[in-house]
Amino acid sequence: MKILIVDDSRAMRRIIQRTLRQAGFKGHDIVEAENGVEALAAVKSESPDLILSDWHMPEMNGIDFKRALNAEGVDTPFGFITSESTMEMRNLAAEAGADFLLAKPFTPDDMEQALGMFVS
């Protein structure tokens, strides 16, 4: 399985990968992108099976990235991993068709719960 991790912080991309392993999701191919623009290109070139995206990013933020995917007919399972999780953001995420929103800080258990139905 190929997982695209989108976050402008390299440290957070490392943490997400580490937590994926701690949650038992091992042996998957990881692709990284720093923002929505890079991520859109990565979706086209890498065809990931799951996308994990930050919300606040330069160039193109997470919600605009998700909307751009929708406009191109890409329906890859998509989850936000973000430091903010207001009801407004959750509603926007749901309206855009995101499958889940995982708030930072998160534990391996949190990640297992959020990703369990998408990752083997």
């Binding site: 430091s83 903010e84 930072k104």
Partner: peptide, 9 residues
């Protein structure tokens, strides 16, 4: 990133 996550909390 530490500040960013803590600021969300």
């Amino acid at each position: 990133e530490i500040v960013n996550v803590a600021a969300g909390v």
